[in-house]
Write a protein that binds this DNA or RNA. Structure first.
Lengths: 129, 129
DNA sequence: CTTCCACCTTACCGCTAGGTCAGTACCTTA
DNA sequence: TAAGGTACTGACCTAGCGGTAAGGTGGAAG
């Protein structure tokens, strides 16, 4: 309802606001804020996981999207893939250093979304007041 | 290259991993991590802004998408819209309390993306080593 | 002998996010 | 008279995100 005109405690500011179109930041942002990218990153933030495990945890993802998302994140150096030449195949996915850095910022965001989703999406204002 | 098997300093964990498909969290997450949603939220985190100002700062956005994104964020109670009945029309957009909360988490994430984009997207590894 | 599982890949395809363009209403400046 | 700025809305269309389904490999289990 009432918007507060806050003094905007912005620690950093981008050029004269937001970054230019077509710059790499936009691309990277698209990768990490993609529908499944967030969930994979989030899931992996809890530790190394296998393909089938990720598939189960990122509920609703298709195998195609899982493969595609993992490949993108691996190319970006956020996820590391370790395949063992055993039968049946075993592949472990985990976050790289950069991936951990990122997940440290991503987790609170998703946590916030999780906490406020019900109130915001359905009209349920302050369930405890 | 080398992935570290970190002890995963996760402060909170979701159920048994990630949240279920079709729940409100997914919807909210889609809104705030949408291509333009992030940029609008980010831009508004620096204070109240007018339509045309947002249009300029979120470089590349179309009027249709600007309107649509603002409408979604307003419905979610993250952005407040104040229209003044003057000629020519003047409308000011700003973040609500919830919006500020969110931007506090979003800004560092985008900052990180901004800092690491060049290194990650183009192959430029450690430009200062 | 067939099925099933793990881990993918490729082919096909619908849907929709998002782009483009035109139009509206009113005032200002050239 | 005409062009331009402010804040939109709606029609139309396309690229590509993402879904569905099938294929492939090799062992183990029925």
């Amino acid at each position: 309802m009432e918007a507060i005109t806050r003094p905007l405690p912005l620690p950093m500011s981008f050029a004269d606001g937001v970054f230019p179109a077509g710059c790499p930041s936009r691309t990277l942002l698209d990768h990490i804020t993609s529908k499944w990218g967030v969930l994979i990153l989030l899931s992996l933030s809890e530790g190394e996981q296998r393909w089938s495990e990720l598939r189960r945890r990122a509920e609703g993802i298709s195998e195609k999207m899982l493969a595609q998302t993992l490949k993108t994140l691996e190319r970006d150096g956020l996820v590391s893939r370790k395949a063992q030449p055993v039968i049946p195949p075993r592949v472990d996915y985990s976050l790289t250093d950069k991936g951990y850095e990122l997940s440290g910022l991503l987790v609170p965001l998703v946590g916030w979304a999780f906490d406020n989703a019900d109130e915001i999406i359905n009209g349920k204002r302050s369930p405890l007041a």
